[in-house]
Amino acid sequence: MTEDFYCDEVLSGKTTVIKVKETENVMAYFHTKPFYPVHIVVIPKMHISSLITLEVSENDLLMELLTVIKEVAKEVNSKYGACRVITNLGNYQDSKHLHWHVVYGTPLKS
């Protein structure tokens, strides 16, 4: 896997995705290799490596990101009755680009 799948593949257009929501600075789309029956990824369009590397100067972007996450989670929750909102840090974070997962259901078998 590339160090930053989101910049290298998704945002560059090399990997086609099905968008759920998009703003000037944030994109939400269906995961390209879902781990759950409903699996949506929400990313900032600018490179930020992790939740813990966010700068105070990026608070407006964080609020825009959280607004999109909230809207997507609300839609999934409304349709299915539940959802999870997940982000990973450190060694749990495969791609070093801040991203959140909005998921529903039990993990799919690989």
Rank of each mutant, 00 (worst) to 15 (best):
E3A: 09
E3R: 14
D4N: 14
Y6I: 03
Y6V: 03
C7L: 08
C7P: 02
C7H: 12
L11R: 08
L11V: 10
S12E: 02
S12D: 04
G13L: 00
T15C: 00
T16V: 10
V17R: 10
V17F: 05
I18Y: 10
V20K: 13
V20L: 06
V20A: 04
K21W: 02
E22I: 04
T23D: 10
T23E: 05
T23S: 14
E24L: 14
E24Q: 14
N25Q: 14
N25A: 09
N25P: 08
V26L: 04
V26K: 02
M27K: 07
M27E: 07
M27A: 13
A28S: 14
A28N: 06
Y29C: 05
Y29L: 11
F30W: 13
T32D: 10
K33L: 07
P34Y: 09
P34W: 09
F35Q: 13
Y36L: 04
Y36R: 11
Y36D: 09
P37C: 08
V38M: 05
V38K: 12
H39N: 12
H39V: 11
I40D: 08
V41E: 11
V41T: 14
V41P: 13
V41G: 11
V41I: 15
V42C: 13
V42Q: 11
P44Q: 01
I48W: 04
S50E: 10
L51P: 06
I52T: 14
T53G: 11
E55L: 09
V56I: 14
N59F: 04
L61M: 08
L61G: 14
M63F: 12
L66Y: 07
T67L: 15
V68C: 13
V68F: 09
I69G: 06
I69Q: 08
E71Q: 11
V72C: 07
K74V: 00
K74C: 01
E75A: 10
E75M: 05
V76Q: 00
V76R: 00
V76L: 01
K79T: 10
Y80M: 03
Y80Q: 09
A82R: 07
A82V: 01
R84L: 00
I86N: 06
I86C: 09
L89P: 02
Y92H: 15
Y92D: 11
Y92V: 04
Q93K: 07
D94V: 09
D94C: 02
D94R: 08
S95W: 05
S95V: 14
